[in-house]
């Protein structure tokens, strides 16, 4: 148990819409080890994003326990959760979610600003992340709306890596990209994983599951097909 970086115990999340109770997550338990590459799959509305947001500490469980690096997140204040996210988790979103008023490189620098890194070190790190994410340095000063989808997602990946987080979370990172670009993004995530980063990816595309060593299937807020090792 101590070597699991993410641990969920009996996590339940209920949304109440009028008199209707929707179990977005219903008693989900799982354990993810350091260095795992996990894919989460399942039909639309099965609770994949909800699960990922729990792991990313963007959302807190209604019931059950979420532990990141052994810390029970329900004991943390808003700002402590923010610090935990800043230091441990890199997010990659389907919509890229870059800040439009900042240039590509500034977007990458942003998490380092929140981490109070000084300007020179920040810029140097951002440039090296650019390379690592297969981005041409000449795009550094472009605004997000001047970049292609694939380029934007690479910027988002560079941003996710800014504070060297041990965990990368990606919610359908290839959903808005063509197959070929999607594959190169997945290859990039695979690369990161091979260097030791724990990667958790929500995806609809079964082919992308090939990059992972663990696949979780969700159905109606419950884990459907175990979280056992995949035969490969």
């Amino acid at each position: 148990m101590p070597d699991s970086i993410v641990e969920l115990q009996n996590v339940t999340k209920v949304y109440t819409l009028g008199s209707n109770e929707i179990y977005a997550l219903n008693g989900v338990s799982l354990s993810i080890k350091k260095g795992d590459f996990v894919t989460i799959m399942g039909p639309s509305g099965s609770g994949k994003s909800t699960l990922l947001n729990m792991v990313g500490c963007l959302d807190l469980p209604g019931e059950g326990i979420v532990r990141i690096n052994g810390t029970d997140v329900s004991t943390l204040s808003d700002d402590e959760l923010t610090t935990l996210r800043r230091d441990n988790i890199g997010f990659i979103f389907q919509q890229f979610n870059l800040i439009q008023t900042l240039t590509a490189i500034e977007n990458v620098e942003m998490p380092m600003i929140f981490n109070r890194m000084d300007a020179d070190a920040r810029r140097k790190k951002a440039l090296s992340l650019f390379k690592q994410s297969n981005l041409e340095v000449e795009y550094a000063d472009h605004r997000p709306n001047e970049l292609s989808g694939g380029q934007q997602q690479r910027v988002a990946i560079a941003r996710a890596l800014a504070n060297d987080p041990p965990i990368i979370l990606a919610d359908e990172p290839t959903g808005n990209l063509d197959t070929k670009t999607g594959e190169s993004i997945m290859a990039l995530l695979g690369d990161l994983n091979s260097k030791g980063t724990t990667v958790i990816v929500v995806t609809h595309d079964p082919r992308l599951a090939e990059y992972s060593n663990t696949a979780i299937r969700l159905q109606d807020g419950e884990i459907y097909h175990g979280s056992g090792e995949k035969n490969q």
């Binding site: 700002d79 923010t82 996210r85 800043r86 439009q100 998490p111 929140f114």
Partner: peptide, 15 residues
């Protein structure tokens, strides 16, 4: 949305 992104990547309330 921008505020949400910033908070997700580590901006505290103070920031």
């Amino acid at each position: 949305k921008e505020i949400g992104i910033m908070k997700a990547v580590g901006a505290s309330r103070n920031e």
